[in-house]
Design a protein around this nucleic acid. Structure first.
Lengths: 192, 192
DNA sequence: CACTGGTTATAACACTCGTGATAGTGTATC
DNA sequence: GATACACTATCACGAGTGTTATAACCAGTG
């Protein structure tokens, strides 16, 4: 009952996902997180006693689940339709933020694990990638694609879209995503 | 006087590229940069009077040029050979660092421009991406690929490899890169 | 020898960081 | 009204940030 009753908590999580997607994890301070979510700093440690790491982990899980939900829904209309929704989702985020926001899952993936073992937020990122790939793979297979080719194409889709999001931000242009989109649509249509 | 341009300076640049590829730009402090390059902190500001931003920009330019050089060389043996070199390069970096290092150009691309205009290190990242794409596009066209399809495939290659590098780090596995490699090789061979 | 100029060492500035401790607020139930 | 408890405000700590200033080194040249 923590989540539904307290909008603050959810605002912090979704706001954190957004801020991480913009600045990266290490550059997003807890104070900035709270301000970005219109939540008091004290609440952060109240809802997330384990501190920044916990907020970050939940934010990555949240972002991953959100994308997975939309992707899963749209894949019901076929792989090509799902791919289009996936592409459109990221294009909107990048363009509407004036190339300032991106993917929080990706942002977390490009920062070194400080210690010896895998930090939880990185594990959450890996899980998000795997879930997206799984959804795409299954949809492709259901529509007649070769099982192994389906898995490879799914990975290619996720990797190229994530990479294209970063390229769009660097170039301040949506062209990389658009180019990747055309190529991926052809591949997906041919595989289905 | 061992080399052109003092060795300290060059060590700082290449060391910075490596550290940025691991931690991201914002999380790589100037003190850590100096220590990582076995250079004194004072030298950093001596060689780079404009501070961290200048070091970062030169590091991204350096990393971009290094990859471009190797890619250009290997593309002389054809697009497929160039692609293989590109893939192998990143796979080596990721695996040999135990999934701790990645691509500094990508790392810089996922951090928000603080002010209103484009910071120089981000412009350097965009330039690096464009150079890699240009090399691939030209090689593909020279080997008989349709001009527009060549440009799209080049973008797809760069984007998916960059994305796969990040996915490999999150999953602590080289599989994403390997899967992407198989798919891209088939596409490149078919286009040439 | 002194002197010069490129390099490095040290200290300090004004911040921000993540995180705790403590006290205060509000509201809801008894 | 009073008591309990979820939430928030405030302050403090030690450490780390980018950067500048100033002093010390240490080569080579006159």
């Amino acid at each position: 009952m923590t989540k539904q009753g307290t909008p603050s908590r959810e605002r912090i999580v979704s706001g954190t996902a957004d801020l991480i997607s913009r600045r990266g994890l290490n550059a997003a301070s807890i104070r900035a997180l709270a301000k970005h979510a219109n939540a008091p700093l004290g609440s952060t440690y109240h809802y997330f006693p384990d501190g920044k790491r916990q907020v970050a982990t939940e934010a990555v899980e949240y972002a991953g689940a959100r994308v997975a939900h939309l992707l899963g829904e749209r894949l019901e209309a076929g792989p090509v339709e799902g791919l289009r929704a996936f592409l459109e989702l990221w294009r909107d985020i990048v363009v509407k933020s004036d190339f300032r926001a991106g993917c929080s899952v990706l942002a977390v993936s490009v920062e070194e694990p400080t210690g010896d073992d895998v930090p939880p937020e990185l594990a959450a990122a890996a899980a998000a990638f795997e879930e997206w790939e799984r959804l795409l793979t299954e949809s492709l297979r259901e529509h007649g694609a070769d099982p192994e080719a389906a898995a490879e194409l799914a990975t290619l889709i996720v990797a190229s879209v994530e990479g294209a999001v970063a390229m769009c931000r660097a170039k301040r242009s949506a062209e990389p995503l658009d180019r990747v989109a055309r190529r991926l649509e052809a591949l997906t249509a041919a595989a289905g």
